[in-house]
């Protein structure tokens, strides 16, 4: 069975790119969310194997959403998406339980490798 992924990003463009990269790699995209609140709600509903979570978003930042998701499921595998210049954020995310980081703009091979590593634990 394919590994399920939820993609969270407030930009439709970014979600579409990630969806294309991950679908190509054989993942099944079971949910998408465009803000922090929606991310938490969708996570409760479909409990995907992996989550890619953007940091800068409306209605709860990625960090806030991450904290709630980790509280719901301490085993959750969440990969944060961040841009250059957000080092302070990545530290906070790591502390809150993020398993890895992928950097924007996305490098398809790097994204695929990072998710594979997180999925294989």
């Amino acid at each position: 069975m394919a590994t399920t992924v939820m993609i969270v990003d407030d930009s439709l463009f970014m979600r579409k790119m990630l969806r294309d990269i991950l679908t190509e790699e054989g993942y099944e995209i079971t949910a998408e969310a465009s803000d922090g609140d929606e991310a938490v709600a969708r996570y409760r509903e479909c409990r995907p194997d992996l989550v890619t979570l953007d940091i800068v978003m409306p209605n709860k930042t990625g960090i806030e959403a991450l904290q709630i998701i980790m509280a719901l499921n301490p085993q959750a595998r969440v990969v944060m998406c961040s841009a250059i210049g957000q080092e302070s954020m990545t530290e906070a995310a790591a502390k809150a339980g993020a398993k890895a980081f992928i950097l924007k703009p996305f490098n398809p091979e790097l994204v695929a490798r990072t998710l594979r590593e997180v999925a294989e634990g």
Binding site: D10, S11, F13, M14, M17, V56, M57, P58, A83, K104, P105, F106
Partner: peptide
């Protein structure tokens, strides 16, 4: 203020992806 910051941030990210 937050929405403005996010707008510029997202624009930057998308443009970087498109090079």
């Amino acid at each position: 203020v937050d929405a403005l910051f996010r707008g510029a941030h997202s624009l930057k990210g998308m443009a970087a992806s498109m090079e």
